[in-house]
Design a protein around this nucleic acid. Structure first.
Lengths: 139, 139
DNA sequence: ATAAATCCTATAAAAAAGATAGACTATTAT
DNA sequence: ATAATAGTCTATCTTTTTTATAGGATTTAT
């Protein structure tokens, strides 16, 4: 399961995407709208900003905004940033690979093979689906 | 990522499957063969036994053995038993569903829709692939 | 009877997740 | 200039989960 942190990030990004035309959006507005602790959300948005996904403006009229159009922000990027590996096992992770310590040889390990397939099936969706694809329908 | 518990369980089950013809297998043998703490493994095998996946025999000549042929033990079952939900979000979990507290209406939530697809793609593999499919190749 | 092995429950230790606090900096309005 | 606004940064705290260990109870083969 995705952590609360990543779940909150998605909901915050959805709110930002659904209000792109309204200029910078307040943390407090997102927090209230999405039922998220404001201080926790603050940290999350900052992390997204430091990763170049969000921009911000300080002072009156300030807030956060998307740095790119929603259709260019892949879901996989957000998950990897906040949650780490998407794969189910370290030995099949593309971005956070670690050797398997319980099997003799990954090259002939059937578990490795199946979990690679699971990873591929998952990434096929998460790398192609973007923020645009998770906006509220009929809104 | 799967927990160590689930990862260990898979490796233990692989060892049991690869030695079905040898009668009950000792916990200590599996622990040594797979580099797993024997006491931790003990708890895991017990849980698998209580779930009906393994059988056991006490005393001399005892040990653990599979209750069904490897091809009838789906990977999804093991994961759900030891790790819980396979889905990335509570609101798209088939077996551990919980309402989303950050969105207004799951029926029109795009995140819900995409994550349902991820779940389906994952389950298509994990429900059909079995212990038989993760055995060491060329062994 | 004895030794071998699993069964069972409790607890401890470590790590991760979730949440909060508060002082600091930049921007804007007046 | 000044005050108010709003994000920045870092530290800490609490809770939960994960990982691991301990030790006595029970069952079985010989």
């Amino acid at each position: 399961m995705l952590s609360k942190k990543t779940q909150y990030a998605f909901h915050a990004l959805i709110h930002l995407a659904e209000n792109v035309d309204k200029g910078p959006i307040l943390i407090s507005e997102i927090a209230q709208e999405k039922n998220i602790s404001i201080k926790f959300l603050e940290n999350i948005l900052l992390e997204l900003k430091n990763a170049g996904i969000l921009g911000s403006k300080k002072g009156k009229g300030g807030g956060y905004y998307l740095m790119r159009p929603p259709k260019e922000i892949a879901l996989a990027k957000i998950i990897r940033l906040l949650d780490g590996p998407i794969a189910l096992l370290p030995c099949v992770s593309l971005n956070y690979y670690e050797r398997c310590e319980n099997c003799r040889d990954e090259a002939v390990c059937g578990l490795n093979e199946v979990m690679s397939k699971v990873r591929d099936a998952t990434l096929k969706l998460l790398e192609t689906k973007t923020l645009k694809d998770i906006l509220t329908r009929n809104a």
